[in-house]
Design a protein around this nucleic acid. Structure first.
Lengths: 225, 225
DNA sequence: ATTACTTTGTGCATCGGTTCACAAAAGGAT
DNA sequence: ATCCTTTTGTGAACCGATGCACAAAGTAAT
């Protein structure tokens, strides 16, 4: 039994969810320049996608455009923000205060909208107690207490690879179900936990693959048109 | 006219290319533990994918397994490395020596196999001349000369968003065709240039979306079975 | 009101990627 | 040499995502 009253269907395609932040950023840019209304064509080009895709993506959220006119920028910002859950603020903990953890703590776009760094933790007594981005670094021993006390619901793992799984287990045991993992390991978690992976070296390797094709291809492949 | 002599077809699916680094990392782990041979089942679980996908992925490179036995770890490492272009070493320049640029320069997995940080550049006279990860920071004014002199073929953009497009244009004009962009902007480049984007805040937003579903879903959606 | 124009929302064909499931190939045992 | 077990490599069905192309819905002008 579907609910016909609800205009937007629950169950937005993953590919669409992954692009919503892109649209949101483009819309923020337009809003700052005081542009009240935007067509799918213009918004699409600002976000670097094609307009049919953008329209289909937005249609999954509901019918928020006006034919012949376009989309109201402010309104669409609100709708997308709400859909992504950015109208509430999320307490994020960064675990691992190496170079990367520090960079993330200071990264502007990270804190910006909807997210707040609520804790930083590390195992190294050398850095525990330091103040980074205006925040005191806690010891990893206090992980469970810090998570509970500060209402952390998203954890960013920026530990060395060797420590990642162990820390991950503790984080999951503490009730966190969303993890952004920068450590180059495959984390094992229950199905109920979401892990997203960012691996810098993988991106470089993909670039190298294509670069090799461009550079070596014409020399090596005689039959490449 | 195809070349029937070549066992592996040129044109490896993008999705496969994106997973090869994953397999490679898992294989390195096995190699370090002295394991000579691995089945698709075991390698797949080490890499966090299912075995059918792994086998199909590897089949795009050629027929490097032995039925009834599995894959020779060392041999497969070599084949994947070669396919990804990691048997040569790539000179990488990091532009923008803020927190992120520093973190990338010091990131172990970054430098590890196939890649070498050949230059770091920044516009801020305060940091130009500093030594980071054993490397002198050059001024962005010398961009073109540094790229040419050190044979840089891959550029990592870690500049502020506002500067990214301008720097990108200069990098492209200097002949670089592979860019890893950390700045939260849509870069405009010629078709011949590959840009890969890493956006930390986008990953967080995707997590927030799913977290919201988990947390709010059961309360808000009465008809979600 | 009617006409002309713009732009959304979507049905439909297509494409790329995933998964299933099994024949083919290899090794080991008898 | 034959049989049995293991595991690869792949054909084929399936699934989700993309992009085209157009009807529907709106605005503006006469």
């Amino acid at each position: 039994m579907k609910s016909p009253s609800h205009p937007r269907d629950r169950g937005i395609p993953d590919a669409t969810v992954a692009r919503l932040p892109l649209y949101l950023r483009a819309l923020h840019g337009l809003a700052e320049r005081g542009i009240p209304t935007v067509s799918s064509e213009d918004l699409a080009s600002a976000a670097g996608v094609n307009s049919a895709k953008l329209r289909k993506d937005l249609s999954h959220l509901g019918s928020y455009g006006t034919r012949g006119v376009g989309y109201d920028v402010e309104y669409l910002v609100y709708q997308i923000s709400r859909e992504l859950g950015l109208t509430q603020d999320w307490a994020v903990a960064i675990i691992g205060v190496g170079n990367l953890g520090r960079a993330l703590a200071n990264y502007g776009g990270f804190v910006s909208r909807g997210f707040r760094i609520a804790a930083m933790l590390d195992a190294d007594p050398e850095v525990v107690g330091d103040t980074i981005a205006g925040l005191n670094v806690d010891h990893i021993d206090d992980l469970e207490a810090v998570i509970k006390r500060r209402g952390v619901s998203i954890v960013v793992l920026a530990t060395p690879a060797a420590a990642a799984q162990e820390v991950c287990d503790r984080v999951v045991a503490a009730g966190v179900t969303s993890i952004l993992n920068f450590a180059p390991v495959v984390l094992t978690v229950p199905d109920s936990v979401d892990v997203r992976k960012v691996d810098l070296s993988i991106e470089l390797q993909i670039l190298a693959f294509h670069e090799q094709r461009k550079a070596g291809g014409p020399l090596m492949a005689v039959d490449t048109q």
